[in-house]
Design a protein around this nucleic acid. Structure first.
Length: 290
DNA sequence: GCGACGCTTTTGATTACTTCA
DNA sequence: TTTGAAGTAATCAAAAGCGTC
């Protein structure tokens, strides 16, 4: 039953092996991908793929971390049978036993701790005391999470063994981490969209104002005073685009603007929202001479 | 300075439900 | 269609952090 990962599943806790390839862009970039980096290289759940027959690589840093961890008394010294899943009754160094609620132990009994054989433990402490992971444990988990946001059973067991935790604890930690990462990303996305919305609202307000001014100007008699006859400023009543049909583009000041009618309807990928689409048209035409 | 106290935040754990092979 | 193993979402509650007295 207990599959022995004799090649000692080198938990690749190092980030140094592969230089991070797709560094997350500074900002929500992931509105499209929607999840942060770790999720990207995440193959679909159900890790049946042998791809991840445990993390392969052991880097210097990993070794370092490992020896480091060996030195630490991470929780109580759990004696782990090599192949068979451990599950020493784990408790944090500070807090007492992490006990388990009745239902939980029941469940573990039933499912046999999934990967584990010995549901062990805790001897039936009623009060559910929560253990907190040590900094070192948390650090290793974080490192691992950066590489793989979820673990296959082998990895889970190996990591648990390494950290002197129960596989279930590792599993739970990863679940929580995924959930909270996602939540955080959602918040970021939300903020980003909010600011986009504000910008667009502001832009819209400004453009509306400009349209109104143009309308007013168009009706004003002054408007026609210095106008070259061939030049006409027309506005489509439906789309409200302004177009100038003129032989002399200088009359408007921005021929490109006029002939393409890009004044109001601009493309979405235009760089800056705050670019004034009417750079010269009004000041140029209505320069007073007195 | 320091300890008690209350409130808030963080985080390990549980439960219910969904998805997929 | 059923089943079991994986996942997520929501929630609880212990531990830690922090400000105040």
């Amino acid at each position: 039953m207990a599959e022995k990962d004799d090649d000692s599943i080198g938990l690749s806790l190092s980030l140094s092996l592969k230089p991070p390839q797709n560094l997350p862009p500074p900002f929500p970039s992931n509105l499209m991908h929607s999840l942060p980096l770790p999720f990207h290289n995440n193959q679909h759940h159900h890790h049946k793929s042998p791809l991840s027959d445990a993390f392969r690589s052991i880097s210097d840093r990993n070794a370092e971390t490992r020896s480091f961890l060996r030195g630490i008394d991470v929780n109580q010294p759990a004696i782990l049978a090599d192949g068979d899943e451990e599950v020493a009754a784990v408790s944090s160094p500070n807090s007492t036993v992490s006990s388990i609620s009745g239902k939980r132990s029941e469940r573990e009994e039933n499912e046999g701790e999934r990967a584990s054989t010995t549901p062990d433990d805790e001897g039936g402490e009623e009060t559910r005391k929560k253990m907190r992971l040590t900094k070192e444990q948390a650090a290793v988990l974080e490192e691992t999470f950066k590489e793989h946001s979820s673990l296959n059973p082998k990895q889970k067991v190996a990591l648990a063994k390494q950290l002197n935790l129960r596989p279930r604890q590792v599993e739970v930690w990863f679940q929580n981490r995924r959930a909270r990462t996602k939540l955080k990303q959602t918040e970021l996305d939300c903020d980003y969209l909010k600011s986009c919305c504000e910008n667009l609202t502001e832009e819209n307000r400004r453009l509306q104002k400009e349209v109104n001014e143009l309308r007013a100007l168009k009706l004003s008699p002054q408007f026609y005073m210095n106008m070259n006859p061939p030049t006409t400023l027309t506005m489509c009543p439906q789309c409200e685009r302004v177009a100038v049909s003129s032989s002399s583009s200088s009359a408007v000041g921005s021929s490109e603007l006029a002939t393409t009618g890009v004044g109001i309807a601009r493309t979405a990928n235009q760089k800056s929202m705050s670019v004034n689409p009417w750079p010269t048209i009004i000041p140029h035409r209505f320069k007073t001479t007195d």
